[in-house]
Design a protein around this nucleic acid. Structure first.
Lengths: 175, 175
DNA sequence: AACTTACGTCAGCCTTGTTGACTTTCCAAG
DNA sequence: CTTGGAAAGTCAACAAGGCTGACGTAAGTT
């Protein structure tokens, strides 16, 4: 019915030479804030359900995701990405290593560093988690269409803190 | 430089009559997942900094946001939106009421219900929190442009759980 | 009168974050 | 070679914010 009431989203200034001057009312921004809140709930819901069947939490998922993404990454690198203390990360890493999901390897160039890898078992777990999460992403992408997806990524990127945006882009361009 | 490497995002099937058949590789979906993760960090960073100066956390922010949004909402309504237990919400609500940020009013039609409102003090706090959050949203929206914003909202909406999407749309159409 | 709903609250538990302190290992600069 | 500092691991203690279970009370509903 009133599905088009959503298109009060934005516009260019009247008589404003077509430049990028948006009318962003507090209400429109509030809707965006709520969209982030509700969408993030959906975003984490599927993996959360799987995780709780194996005594892990979101913290484990995050670690596993980024170790999968950057095999051989170091602990301090991971600390920077995840933005937690080493004590907090260590607890999570400890249980992942003890359960045989993650392997920690002393650095050859720099012996202080530990390089982190997923074991076969860990890769399997990562796959089951990310399959669930990707399924929802795929459905959302399909429903919204390619143009929307492009915009989605642009806004999210603009929302990141600069340091993390750099990290994100490094991943993006394949590292 | 390689900013156009991001446009491997999606496409329609070759020879596929222009329908909505997207090529969504696991890699592309993974980028979306990471974008959500990093963007959400940015999204909460500013209010988090303010909250910690007043002994509140994200849980308080969420409650205050939705009470501001729907003044007079009931406890059980809020429980549904936030997806937490009443014990958990009550702890947060208790402190907000004790500190004079929230007012709880016995329902006149149904005396079992408690209707929640922000006090003046509560409204002021809400404003300071949402000003910070909106500033980032506004910057991101400006940077990405109106078309991107439209897509951003579409994808997020498609990512929500159906129940929350309904709630979101009810808010959206002004309730 | 009996049942149900909405709310509040007590007690206890878990995860995941925090700080602070201390140790071991190891690279690198003086 | 020594020393300073970085990377990592660990111990202890604590807090926020989730959870379950149980119980009580007020107020509608049948």
């Amino acid at each position: 019915m009133s599905q088009f009431s959503g298109s009060q989203l934005s516009g260019t200034a009247p008589g404003g030479g077509g430049e990028n001057l948006l009318f962003l009312t507090d209400e429109q921004l509030r809707k965006g804030i709520e969209a982030m809140f509700f969408a993030y709930r959906g975003f984490t819901a599927d993996p959360d359900r799987i995780l709780e069947t194996m005594d892990y939490g979101r913290a484990h998922h995050r670690a596993v995701h980024f170790i999968h993404r950057s095999p051989g990454t170091t602990v301090s690198n991971l600390l920077g990405i995840l933005g937690v203390t080493k004590q907090s990360l260590n607890r999570v890493l400890r249980s992942l290593i003890d359960d045989g999901h993650v392997r920690s390897e002393k650095g050859r160039r720099d012996g202080r560093e530990r390089h982190l890898f997923l074991t076969e078992k860990g890769e399997a777990m990562e796959k089951s988690l990310s399959d669930a999460q990707r399924a929802r992403m795929r459905a959302a992408y399909r429903a919204a269409g390619p143009v929307a997806v492009q915009g989605f990524r642009q806004v999210l990127e603009a929302m990141m803190d600069p340091g993390l945006r750099d990290y994100y882009n490094r991943l993006r361009d394949g590292a």
